[in-house]
Design a protein around this nucleic acid. Structure first.
Lengths: 318, 318
DNA sequence: TTAGAGGATGGAACGCGTTTCAGAGCAAGA
DNA sequence: TCTTGCTCTGAAACGCGTTCCATCCTCTAA
């Protein structure tokens, strides 16, 4: 394959001039520009991006860390990232961690080794202060409330507030045994949600109902099975993601539990599925969040930490 | 940041020796090796992957083209790719096309520009012979039956066969108005399915029922709405992906259509969701397919074209 | 004693764009 | 006429590992 020096020779100019033509720099006479273009077309010349990367010290590649790429929540986040990446002529490397720390380390090392320019961490298991240290190698953005942290940027929604709002809303509708379903117990977002729940329970004492490790539709069945085992059952559930809420909605239909009379449901994310099923949920701008994460990764955000607003969508499950 | 020459100087050896130490080449005395390691640790040296890439003419990066990253089918495919990538110390760049040709071109150009070593095309709109031409720049693997093509590799399942099997199965169970639901109409896999359907209709004449543009759960509702408009309704549906079948299953419950008495359902892919709902479906080894795609991309497959087997999972919707 | 083999090591070229800097040419303003 | 300043051009250095090739040394087999 031809390189820039071949082209220079063919066109009878220096490599500098060829480079200028390629990158549309000024100060190239029309005839030389023409000669270079001719030569490039003749041998179907293509710049070697790796060489450009080395030369510029940039890869035009962003790393995106997700625990599960095929979860609808992360799917939408990726969608947002992809959207911005495309517009800005960047690409991204997807790193699926399954919440294994070693994979997160690997992602951080890619940053260190200059394989990527910046890193977006959508969800993590490593401690934030371990991650922070890698900031010297490139921008790091997390998708959680990291306000005050001076090393990493963040884009997040206020899970404490939205959970509190939802709990209050259920309370106002007369529900008295409110539980919640969530993915993992640890993690920053889960922490804020748990706090909101605990604080709510202090205000309105009731039994605690927490169902963990729920990510997918079929986990709705699991939750329903668990509920059926309980003597005292919750009469309302806050479900951290719509797809699980949809699973509960479906699982419940065979066993005579009526929604919302016997069981109220509030989901999260306003996935199309919840619209179809009429599930009350929170509109969370996930795609926008992905886009903003990307903007932060590029260092083009005005502020380091950015909160996005959510709104409750009232439908038929409360 | 320190580079290999700094290390060489610090350790009092040549860059060649440093390189040998880094890459575990033989013929380095123990004391020099030690000195190099000392120096590297002292300044926290990290190889610059971009430089390695340029030098080796490889990026250790594979491009993965999907129309929609968040569709469960492609999600599982990505899962398989990710699995192999991790094991082999590769990474992958995800290119979401939304079936826009321009994005596919972009992916092909990444190959041309040596941004990626190989390209996996999970689904495409561009013509295969346009894609073929890029094979000179790196391996290209498609996820469809491309048997006989000498330029691209392929990993696929026999959609003609599986569709025929499913149609026959429905016929044997007494269904006489069989339709099918699919994503897009064009595309290689859709073509084979359509052929199977047409050939089946020749053997057992009946009205044709084809529902297109169905990708997600909520499209199940759309299909049911369409069906309700029809004077003559299908009594069985072959649904090209489980999530849509699940959507149909759900949508139908409110309007008094009984499954499988009024409407039989066969899905595809054996997603967990279909198990929970008891939907008869085909077990398709999607994750394995993703893995195999990756192996082919690396040029480590024994054959150019590889067919994977599917099996019918009988449940309660037929 | 000698030839050959294998171990150890480094110089320099290579992969390929980008960028700095110096210099030449030429026109407009002083 | 002399500056100043802009246009145009190219040599060379740079970013940073990898690898080919030559060299030197030591040890073993003949």
């Amino acid at each position: 394959m031809a390189n820039i020096r071949d082209i220079a020779q063919m066109a009878g100019v220096s490599v500098t001039t060829v480079s200028r033509v390629i990158n549309n720099h000024p100060y190239v006479s029309e005839e030389k520009r023409e000669a270079v273009i001719q030569a490039m077309e003749k041998v179907n010349y293509q710049v070697n991006r790796t060489a450009v990367n080395l030369s510029q010290g940039k890869t035009h590649l962003i790393g995106v860390v997700v625990p599960f790429a095929r979860h609808p929540y992360f799917g939408l986040l990726i969608e947002g990232v992809a959207k911005q990446a495309m517009e800005r002529h960047y690409h991204f490397v997807l790193i699926q961690t399954n919440y294994e720390g070693s994979r997160e380390w690997e992602a951080l090392n890619m940053l260190k080794h200059k394989q990527i320019d910046a890193l977006i961490i959508c969800s993590r298991t490593l401690a934030l202060d371990e991650i922070e240290r890698y900031q010297q190698y490139g921008a790091i953005v997390v998708c959680e409330n990291a306000t005050g942290n001076q090393y990493v940027d963040s884009v997040y929604i206020d899970h404490y507030q939205s959970f509190t709002d939802a709990l209050t809303y259920l309370h106002q509708h007369g529900y008295q045994q409110i539980g919640y379903c969530i993915g993992r117990q640890s993690g920053s977002n889960s922490y804020f949600r748990h706090q909101a729940y605990q604080d709510f329970l202090k205000r309105y004492p009731q039994q605690e109902f927490i169902f963990t490790d729920n990510y997918y539709f079929e986990d709705g069945q699991k939750i329903v099975d668990e509920i059926m085992q309980l003597r005292v059952k919750p009469d309302a559930l806050l479900v951290s993601c719509d797809i699980v809420a949809a699973g509960i909605f479906t699982a419940v239909q065979n066993i005579g539990i009526e929604i919302p009379n016997d069981l109220a449901l509030i989901g999260f994310d306003n996935q199309p599925m919840s619209k179809m099923m009429g599930i009350t949920t929170f509109e969370v701008p996930i795609v926008t969040m992905g886009e903003r994460l990307f903007i932060h990764a590029l260092g083009e955000a005005e502020t380091s930490h950015e909160k996005l607003a959510v709104t409750l969508i009232e439908r038929k499950t409360v």
